[in-house]
Design a protein around this nucleic acid. Structure first.
Length: 630
RNA sequence: GCCAGAAUAGCUCAGUUGGCAGAGCGGUUCACUCGUAAUGAACAGGUCAGGGGUUCGAAUCCCCUUUCUGGCUCCA
C-alpha cells in the first residue's frame, strides 16, 4: 500500500500546523474573496488606522504577519542590497520570506535582521498600495528574476499591485496593516532559517528562507513560545529516551527502530487490542514473508511504479528477491491459493506486516519517518456491489479506534489520480465518487488532494489533530482496481462465471512506528492506565519495608497489573521523584502502618494521595481504569 | 537527495587565542532505621562520530565520510 502524500511530512508536524492556516479548508475561492474584502477595508483605514476591530482578530493577525514579512524583506535588503526576493507569505503563527542571497545566513545575521526589523517596526511607516500596469511592473522588477516570474504567471487581466512601506516596495496582493505603528516591535521573533526550493521544486534554485512568528502582544508571543517549548518537551525522541522506550542506532542504520522492553510492552498492548478488535470486526489475520521474487513485484507493478522506494534486490539461486515495501501482493497470493466463490466474499485479511522502504536520508525523523515500519495493513476483497459498504465500514472502524485513543479531531483528505498511474478514467471517477460518498456519510470534514492518489487507485487519508493543534496523517483507505487485474484474480459468481473482485487496501494506525511516536507525543509519555508500560511503582518508606513492598508488587502482578517495587538504596523521596519522572500513573507507598492493616498509600502522577486505601479497593480502582481505557 | 547547522562519558552539557579531557545526573561500592519530588562519600566511566591533512603540538583549523537537527522535496 502506498503512503499518503504531503500534508504531514515526517519531519514536519510543525509545518503542518503552520500550513493549516495557509491553506484553509474554505478553499481558494473563499480566501480570494476574503482578500478582496480586506483590501476594501484597508482602503478605508487612514494613516492613523485602527489597530484592530472587534470582529477581525484572525484577519488582523494575518495582515500583521504579512506586514512583518515585508519589514523583514526591508531589513534583509539593508544587509544584502543585492538580495533577490522570492515570496513572503503569512503562515499559521507567523510568516516567512524566501531570499536568494550571496552567502549563507548565520545566526548572527538573523539577530541583525531582527534588530533592524525592530527599528523599522517601531517607526510609523504607512503601507501604501498602488496599482501599475504590466510593462511598468516588468521594468520596476527588472533585476528581480523571481518577481518577474511571478508577474509572468499573473493572468492577463489581473491587477498588478505594489505595497510600499518606508524604503521597501514589493509586488504584493496584500492585505497589510495601515502602518508599522500597528506592528508591535516586541511581539515578533525570528525563529530560524532553512533552505527552500523556489516554488517547492527541487529542480529549481535553493533559496534561503527565514521564519518568524508575530503576535499583537508580548503575552501572546510568550504564550506561543511556551507552546513550542511544550512541543519540545513532548517530542517522542526525547520522551522515548527518557522513558527508555526506543532507540535508533547509527551503527545499525538510520530509520530503523529498536523497541526497548518498555516500548515493546506498549507496542504489545496495542497489538493485542488491535488483534482483538479485528477478530471482532470480521477480519482474519494472516502472516506473510518479508521478501519475494522479482516476479511478484513485476506482476504487481511495483517495479514500474514504486522501484525508487524499494531496497535494491538480493541475488540468490539465479533469482532476484526484493524486501517488501508493501504487503498487498502477498495477500493476493493467499487469495489466489484457492478458487474463491462469491459466497466467500467479502474477505478481510489483516496483518501487522513489516515492510522496508527507501526513504531519502533528509526525510527521516525519529520514529515518525523510518525505513523499516510495521503497517497495520489489511486488504478487503469483495464483489463490486459490496465495495461501498466495505469502505463505509472501514471508516467507521477506523474512527472508533481513534476515539479510543482520545483523538477526536479528524480531517479527511480525498486523493485523486496521480500522473503515474494505471487504469481508465471512468474507473477512477467511479471509485473516487464512492470514496466521497463514504466520507460524507460519516459527516467528516474533508479536503481534496488532487493527484495524491496511489498509482493503483484513489484513496482517503485521515489526519488527526492533537491537543497542541498539530496534524498527523495516519489512516489510509485505498481503492484498487489495478492489482486484481494484474494478478488475474477472480471469483466464481452465482451464475458460474468468473468475475473480478474489487480490492481495498487500508491501514488504520498507518505504521506502528509512527503511531507509537504520535501516541508518545499525544500523552507526553504520561500514558493512561491501560497503556502505561509500568502502571504502578511500589515504594517502601524505609529498608525495613522492602520485603512488604516486593510482596505488594507481586500481588498486583497476580491481578494482572504491571507493577514494580523500587528496592534501590535511595531514600523514599528520591524514589517518588524517579517514578514521577518516569510518568508512572501510580506510586504506592508502604511502610509498617500499611503492612499491619493490609492497606496502601496511593499517590498519583499529579501528586494527590490517598492514605489507608485497602488493597482490594486499589485493585478495583486499577481494574476499572484499565477496562475503561482511561 | 538539496540548503544550513551540529556531533565531547549512558544522559544533559562546559572546554578561552591550538598546549595534560571536565561538571551535573546516571552507574558501582560503602555508610545511614529514612512517611510522599534529589541522604552523604568514594570509585569506575571518553580513540572528543570515523578517516585523512595542517602543525613542535589538534576536541579546537582544513578536507572527506557517517549520523543527527531544522527546513525544502517525497511518502505511513
Amino acid at each position: 500500500m502506498r503512503a499518503p502524500r504531503r500534508r504531514c511530512r515526517p519531519a514536519a508536524y510543525r509545518w503542518c500546523a503552520r500550513s493549516g492556516a495557509v491553506r484553509p479548508a474554505a478553499g481558494d475561492a473563499a480566501s480570494r474573496s476574503l482578500v478582496a474584502h480586506l483590501t476594501e477595508r484597508e482602503d478605508m483605514t487612514g494613516p492613523e488606522g485602527i489597530t484592530k476591530s472587534e470582529d477581525d482578530g484572525a484577519d488582523h493577525l494575518y495582515r500583521v504577519r504579512h506586514s512583518f514579512a515585508h519589514v523583514m524583506a526591508e531589513a534583509v535588503l539593508e544587509l544584502f542590497p543585492d538580495a533577490k526576493l522570492a515570496i513572503g507569505p503569512p503562515i499559521a503563527d507567523g510568516f516567512y520570506y524566501d531570499f536568494d542571497l550571496p552567502r549563507p545566513l548565520t545566526p548572527d545575521d538573523l539577530e541583525d535582521v531582527e534588530r533592524r526589523m525592530r527599528r523599522i517596526a517601531a517607526g510609523d511607516h504607512r503601507f501604501v498600495r498602488s496599482v501599475i500596469d504590466r510593462e511598468d511592473a516588468v521594468q520596476r522588477f527588472a533585476d528581480q528574476p523571481y518577481k518577474l516570474e511571478l508577474i509572468d504567471n499573473l493572468a492577463q487581466d489581473d491587477e498588478i499591485s505594489l505595497f510600499t512601506q518606508d524604503t521597501f516596495t514589493d509586488l504584493c496582493r496584500g492585505p497589510h496593516v495601515g502602518s508599522t505603528r500597528q506592528l508591535n516591535p516586541a511581539a515578533f521573533k525570528l525563529t530560524g532559517s532553512a533552505g527552500a526550493y523556489w516554488r517547492g521544486d527541487e529542480r529549481r534554485p535553493m533559496l534561503q528562507r527565514i521564519y518568524g512568528t508575530a503576535w499583537d502582544s508580548e503575552e501572546e508571543l510568550a504564550a506561543h513560545l511556551e507552546r513550542l517549548a511544550e512541543i519540545e518537551r513532548r517530542d517522542h525522541r526525547r520522551v522515548g529516551r527518557e522513558l527508555d522506550l526506543f532507540s535508533i542506532q547509527e551503527q545499525v542504520g538510520p530509520g530503523l527502530i529498536f523497541w526497548h522492553p518498555k516500548g515493546a510492552r506498549l507496542r504489545s498492548i496495542i497489538e493485542e487490542f488491535w488483534k482483538q478488535r479485528h477478530y471482532a470486526g470480521g477480519y482474519e489475520l494472516v502472516n506473510t514473508p518479508h521478501v519475494g521474487r522479482e516476479w511478484l513485484w513485476q506482476t504487481s507493478g511495483h517495479l514500474d511504479f514504486y522501484a525508487g522506494n524499494m531496497f535494491p534486490p538480493m541475488e540468490l539461486d539465479n533469482s532476484r528477491y526484493y524486501l517488501k515495501p508493501m504487503n498487498c501482493p502477498f495477500h493476493i497470493m493467499i487469495y489466489k491459493s484457492a478458487i474463491r466463490s462469491y459466497r466467500d466474499l467479502p474477505l478481510r485479511w489483516a496483518e501487522l506486516g513489516t515492510v522496508y522502504r527507501f526513504e531519502r536520508s533528509g526525510t527521516l525523523h525519529g520514529a515518525l519517518r523510518v525505513r523499516g515500519l510495521t503497517q497495520d495493513d489489511a486488504h478487503l476483497f469483495c464483489t463490486p456491489d459490496q465495495v461501498e459498504d466495505e469502505i463505509d465500514e472501514v471508516l467507521r472502524f477506523s474512527l472508533s479506534l481513534w476515539h479510543t485513543y482520545g483523538f477526536t479531531d479528524l480531517v479527511a483528505y480525498l486523493a485523486t489520480r496521480p500522473e503515474k498511474s494505471v487504469g481508465d478514467d471512468a474507473s477512477w471517477e467511479r471509485a473516487t465518487a464512492s470514496l466521497r460518498r463514504a466520507i460524507e456519510a460519516h459527516g467528516l470534514p474533508y479536503e481534496m488532494d488532487e493527484g495524491g492518489g496511489a498509482f493503483y487507485g484513489p484513496k482517503i487519508d485521515l489526519h488527526l489533530r492533537d491537543p497542541l493543534g498539530r496534524l498527523w496523517q495516519m489512516t489510509t483507505i485505498q481503492f484498487d482496481f489495478n492489482l486484481p487485474e494484474r494478478f488475474d484474480m477472480w471469483f466464481a459468481d452465482r451464475d458460474g462465471s468468473q468475475q473480478r473482485p474489487f480490492m481495498v487496501h487500508r491501514a488504520l494506525h498507518g505504521s506502528f512506528e509512527r503511531f507509537l511516536g504520535v501516541l508518545i507525543e499525544h500523552y507526553g509519555g504520561a500514558f493512561p492506565m491501560w497503556l502505561a508500560p509500568v502502571q504502578a511503582v511500589v515504594i517502601p518508606v524505609n529498608p525495613k519495608a522492602f520485603p512488604y513492598a516486593g510482596k505488594v508488587a507481586a500481588r498486583l502482578g497476580e491481578h494482572g497489573f504491571r507493577a514494580d517495587a523500587d528496592l534501590s538504596d535511595n531514600r523514599m523521596n528520591a524514589k517518588i521523584r524517579t517514578a514521577q519522572g518516569q510518568k508512572v500513573p501510580y506510586m504506592i507507598v508502604v511502610g509498617a502502618r500499611e503492612e499491619e492493616s493490609d492497606t496502601l498509600s496511593l499517590r498519583t502522577r499529579d501528586g494527590t494521595q490517598t492514605q489507608g486505601l485497602e488493597f482490594a479497593a486499589c485493585v478495583e480502582l486499577f481494574r476499572r481504569q484499565v477496562d475503561e481505557r482511561s
